[in-house]
């Protein structure tokens, strides 16, 4: 029973982690909490919905829907930054935060009036999958095909991101910009390009999370990004906002806590428990698990 819950927790946690990565990367580069980030999940899920509906729910169309939704969200993420955030980059931080909330509301409610999205929830096409029953040390454990897809795709995405950030030229430039934007620009790095790239990658990760989330909880509607987005934000803060490994760890901790609270405490109280734990951890470690205390720049 516990093992089963842990598997469910990990699956959900991986999805949170994918979303949290976008929050934390954008924060690391421009010190902005992009509240419209959860809506990228929604846009990604809808893109996947249209493709899976048109082509039928097969493994190859799932792969296609992942790739296309990543591209769509990357473009929308970059456009969002260019149109809404870039003009405010030198403005007080609170202004850009309010714009982010506004952008989020526009996207969610804009989706409701678009004829091809609309206000009504829709059933998400699902792969005709098998349910695997495993026998682990005398316990029956069920792993659905969706769970396996979520875990495998998430691990591939995170490994890919880790590689880009650690070893490629643009990844090094991203780290340099997040350490010290001014110094990076004076060493010849085009900061605008790096910011766009960060939004593109973060939004693409959210798109993947959207398709995975919708295939696990098979329903799409325009407000679907709000709660996962909020929880992923909590995960990013829990892990230490700005830290990429922190976002991964924070997401998984959050997913497991949520599922265990649902299973053993109360399914109605699960969110209260999760956020309560967040408060406790942040009281002990205000900068999050992997976070570093920020020194004042002189």
């Amino acid at each position: 029973m516990l093992l089963q819950q842990l598997i469910n927790g990990f699956t959900l946690g991986f999805i949170y982690a994918l979303i949290a990565l976008g929050y934390t990367m954008v924060y690391g580069i421009v010190r902005l909490i992009n509240f419209a980030h959860g809506d990228m999940l929604m846009i990604g899920a809808y893109t996947g919905y249209f493709i899976l509906n048109a082509l039928g729910a097969t493994p190859s169309s799932l792969v296609l829907s992942l790739v296309v939704s990543m591209m769509v969200c990357a473009v929308i993420g970059v456009a969002l930054e260019r149109i809404c955030y870039k003009p405010l980059r030198t403005a007080p931080r609170i202004n850009i935060l309010i714009v982010a909330i506004g952008a989020s509301l526009v996207i969610e409610n804009g989706g409701r009036i678009l004829p091809f999205m609309g206000p009504n929830p829709r059933q998400y096409p699902q792969l005709a999958g098998s349910v695997n029953q495993l026998d682990v040390m005398g316990q029956q454990v069920i792993i659905s095909q969706q769970d396996i897809i979520v875990i495998v795709v998430s691990i591939v995405m995170m490994a890919g991101l880790g590689y880009i950030v650690k070893f490629t030229k643009i990844g090094k430039a991203m780290r340099a910009v997040s350490h010290d934007t001014r110094a990076a620009s004076l060493m010849g790095i085009n900061v605008d390009r790096i910011i766009s790239f960060t939004f593109a990658i973060g939004s693409a990760m959210a798109a993947v999370a959207g398709v995975l989330f919708a295939s696990k909880y098979p329903q799409v509607q325009t407000y679907m990004g709000i709660l996962p987005g909020l929880k992923a934000f909590v995960a990013a803060v829990l892990g230490g906002i700005g830290s990429i490994p922190g976002a991964m760890i924070g997401g998984i901790i959050l997913g497991i806590t949520e599922i265990l609270s649902k299973a053993y405490i109360s399914s109605k109280m699960a969110d209260a428990v999760v956020f309560g734990i967040l408060v406790l951890i942040l009281m002990v470690r205000p900068t999050g698990i992997m976070g570093k205390s920020l020194k004042e720049k002189v």
């Binding site: 090094k172 430039a173 780290r175 340099a176 350490h179 110094a183 060493m187 010849g188 790095i189």
Partner: peptide, 18 residues
């Protein structure tokens, strides 16, 4: 204003890369 969390070599390579 070095990129403090990066290695010495990475600090130099960033400039080359740009």
């Amino acid at each position: 204003r070095l990129f403090k969390e990066m290695t010495v070599l990475e600090n130099v390579l960033i400039s080359y890369h740009a």
